[in-house]
Design a binder for these strands. Sequence first.
RNA 1: GCUGCUGUAGCUCAGUGGUAGAGCACUUCCUUGGUAAGGAAGAGGUCAUGGGUUCAAGUCCCAUCAGCAGCUCCA
Length: 731
Amino acid sequence: MLEIQLPDGTIVSHPDDATPLSVAEKIGSRLAKAVIAAKIGDLIVDATRPLKSFANGTPIPLRLLTEKDPEALDVLRHSSAHVMARAIMRLYPNVSLAFGPTITNGFYYDFDLPQKLNEDDFAKIEAEMAKIIELAEPFEQFSLDRTQSVELCRDMKQTLKVEHIETGLASHESLGFYRQGEFVDLCRGPHIPDAGRIKAFKVMSIAGAYWKGDADGLQLQRVYGTAWFSPKDMQAHLEQVEEAKKRDHRVIGKRLGLFQISSEVGPGMCLWLPKGARIRSLLEDFLRKEMLKRGYEPVYSPHLGRVELYETSGHFPYYRDSQFPPLFVNDGGALVDGWIRRLESKEGLPVAHEQAFMQAAEVLGCEIKEYKVEQSVAERTAVLQTWQRLHERYLVKPMNCPHHAQIFKAMPRSYKQLPLRLFEFGTVYRFEQTGELNGMLRVRGLTQDDAHIFCTQDQVEQEFRNTIELTRMVLESVGLKDYRVQLSLRDPKSDKYVGSEENWQKAEAALRRVLEESGLNFQAAEGEAAFYGPKADFMVRDCIGRQWQLGTVQLDYNLPERFQLEYIGSDNKTHRPVMIHRAPFGSMERFVGMLTEHFAGAFPMWLAPEQVRICPLSEKSNDYALELEKQFLDAGFRVTVDLRGAKVQAKIRDAQVELIPYMAVVGPREAETRSIALRDRIEGELGTKPVAEVLSMLAEEVNQRRIRFAVQKETNEPEQPKVTETASHEY
RNA sequence: GCUGCUGUAGCUCAGUGGUAGAGCACUUCCUUGGUAAGGAAGAGGUCAUGGGUUCAAGUCCCAUCAGCAGCUCCA
């Protein structure tokens, strides 16, 4: 007999051949029908899995999973992936299966198949899946040893599975399979009892994917799907996807006129329209003020730097592929650049091409007399590199650090000047792959709220503490309160890191100490540090639960070394400072893009590009409206008047659609009493108030940077009442 | 960069080889009103670009460019 402990603590006895399903049957036939899978401790298993294998002398902790348990949905989706794979194998010949896991809200399966699938195939696939589900055949688990497994997969011509058994699963003695009708798949499980449990499913999309994530490897076709226990749940999900699309910063950015990416300017090049620029400049002013208070000093640097600067920093040619190509002042610059790269390439430079290069150099008027074909590759390269150093080459700057390092170097530094905190809203350019570009979230020209702190090793802890405090303050001022920090530390086994062992230990301990005392939710990640120093990244959760990586703080032992940065210590000897890179927003583009989605375009009063729209009732009230506009402007508000000959209903509707926080409706009554009939975009009418009262009320909302969400967050439980979140920040 | 999809008016989109369409926005006129759309008229197009097939191409084919989804990448 097996002793089984149910979630309520009761212990029941069952025969040795008991399964979760048989336990459920004992409790009731309705429950047995509802069981999808079971949980033994933390392990999710099939409902048909014999429980005997879990017996270890103590009662087996068993929890039956039904449609109500979120874990069950995962099981359902994994089984749906099998059903989809089965359908696709029936429809198309020579399908080789890769992996088919579940993901948030659905599943996918990767296939290697000769036929290119597209959206027109979805209906066919869905119809075939429906047939399989109709039959409600069971999922049957069985195990084989390694040899038998490989043999079985070979027989089924599943070459990718064979490869996976031989590589990824090399340490497994025996392997699990599931059979469902004619379909057999290598799979750890668990699965639903039978395919009939899938009540709603949909093939969503198709995309390319790489075998085991290797971009140089085999390209597979990935088919995405979703599955649910009821059509109603699926409908709700599909509607939510639509809702999320409406929140897309690209859609809102266009509708509200925040920014534009024009293909004539170039992909990934963001044009800030007046309203978007307004938001950005408000954020910049806010941060600038906070930084000045905290002892930062503003600096400016140009958008170009000599290539040699980045050779010193180590960013060139190492990151060349993600940088815009160098600018050459001399006509021959690009020629010599290509020439060197071909000389140094694995294939080498064929004689005929070398002759052509030499001739071209002559044509361009930059003949290099010292270059001799009989010299070694190293010698010829050196000759060309000497030529390069004598001719200017520039890079549009991919980062600000080298410039700031030069500012540090501009004069001799004493320990008394440290920490030296230099900040700049620095625009940098990165040649991101075309497929990576995404609205404002991933662009090729971006402005970092960058600062570099030069300090002594002993000052690292306090500077890090201050930086963390600043970042928290900044995030909370826009209502982002749900975040965690990833502390990236060294891999103790690796030796790829620069900087002394002692400094690393001190720095890592200091960062950890600061995070611990800050009470922040943080996780340490060993081996995630950059080679030049440990770092802390802020992972922020927005109001619909998505995670963003925004602010970052990074210690750097590398650049001070490479740039030979020094200060004179109290001992009158030279010392090397530590450099801290930090950016609370990350980049203005990404931050504003993220905020747009976070607020669904309804920016809080302190950031709203337009704060108040004055809506005169008719042309008779235009004079009073214009008078009010001046009062609002004088009080520092961003305000406009709607002077159109439209009805006030239309003016209000347009202001609401534009998500303007307040509307001031004025007619003869208000003009008479010098008042405003105030309307709030969230609450609606607030009643008629004297002008002075409105001005001070709105000023307070701005000064406190109060956050009131105008567009509700979407939740998975639509029955939940609407909640208006409020948050305020005080100085 | 890779795979798939898309590109028609400022925006959202119809348009199945035979004369280029709708709604919203815009302009003008009428309307002068009390908290989410008053009415009428008008203007607006090299159908992404280049080539091809055809008597005839927005529509079919090829290339290029750009966008979207996913993959790979992000100092």
